[in-house]
Design a protein around this nucleic acid. Structure first.
Lengths: 127, 127, 127, 127
DNA sequence: GTGGTCTAGACCACA
DNA sequence: GTGGTCTAGACCACA
């Protein structure tokens, strides 16, 4: 369900938070969908269950997930604009900016950068 | 000299390390160039001198900088390949991969992503 | 756990680095062994925790220790040759050379020097 | 005249101080002998003259050298016991102790250590 | 509980 | 002038 890279430097709980946000924004997780339980995920990814729990709590605080006594958490109802193209683009703006800045500092050309992006897009980077 | 974002989540000393790496790789800092002194930079960026010192030490350990007792640190001699296009591109590959992954998870198209990159490139994002 | 001499002229953090290196090389610290926590050691030796942290970070950069988020650091897997007699001897070669040079400059004889070494070996010099 | 290793980690001025001490203690520098001037040494070893100057001042403070207005510094008169075997041995005791400690921490045997010492003695390590 | 980062500020070593 | 080391102590991130 999630793609976790433990040694990427990005805290695991944050990786989960971001992926849920993206899946909700893109409609891959529709409102009402139940999420895997904390225990289940913790086992699957061999991660401490506090880590999952923290991610879920943060998502609940953001209003993206809903807690249901005794039952699995579910995806909350989302307002329309939360799935629009603009909203989704906005989620990766800071990352895109940082990448562009780094590329400029390395004195790469715009063409170099878009060639790199294209290459990465074509490689299936899902692991 | 450096662009520091204190609230970006990335430690300040690491931001400096990365920027120096890029400036050396792109030849903006040629071998032998003296770096601004630890105290000078600290004042300029209103940061503690140990923070700068930590960055410089790490760069020395990597072999990018050289310590000169009593004098400012200087850029070490770099091997030719270290400034080649390939090496420079390699420095941002992980960032590019992460961005592509995020875009895919948001179900953006390749065209959406390259439009975003182009836009950020044109905005002067140097601050 | 460590023998620290604060007034020896050798920075405390470096004394720790060297001792850990030796304990790993000699197998006294086997791969996987957890190290005492930064705070614990700091208390024990009445030293600031950053001092310990600096030593541990350097050892991590060298690949001798491994960071485990939220848990104590552990000794990394070492390659076989790293514990061989030759490797261990190599670690004190520079010190031995310097001592021999000093003895010669003092016009001591080889016998004088080895008598001194023997004496120091027999005294329990572990403090 | 002096054997200086700029990258040994030991400050240059200290290397000079120690070598003069040894040469005086072993009688290689007899009382009254004039020393090379600060400038001369600085040129020879391409070292800042403050460095030499600092070493000489420290040796003067210790009473080993004497300043003579307008003329080169000279070796001071030494008391008899200052050149005895015991005194000379005492000068390398701390170094010997540190070496023995390191060897023990590396779990070398007394035999391993004396073999190493012997080897280094035979190699002419005077460079 | 674990480690990491940062500041304020002292004091040292070197040129 | 240069950089290095250390403490006291705050606050954060992770499990």
């Amino acid at each position: 369900m999630f793609i976790l890279k433990p040694n990427s430097g990005i805290p695991i709980y944050r990786q989960i938070v971001e992926q849920v946000r993206r899946m909700v924004a893109s409609g891959q997780l529709a409102p009402g969908t139940p999420l895997p339980s904390v225990r289940e995920l913790a086992l699957q990814h061999t991660v401490h269950h506090m880590t999952i729990s923290k991610a879920y709590s943060q998502l609940e605080a953001e209003g993206l997930l809903e807690r249901n006594r005794g039952k699995p958490m579910t995806v909350a109802a989302v307002r329309r604009e939360q799935t629009g193209l603009q909203t989704r683009v906005r989620q990766i703006e800071p990352q895109a900016e940082a990448l562009v800045l780094a590329a400029k500092q390395l004195q790469l050309s715009a063409a170099d950068l878009s060639r790199l992006i294209k290459k990465k897009w074509e490689e299936d980077s899902n692991e």
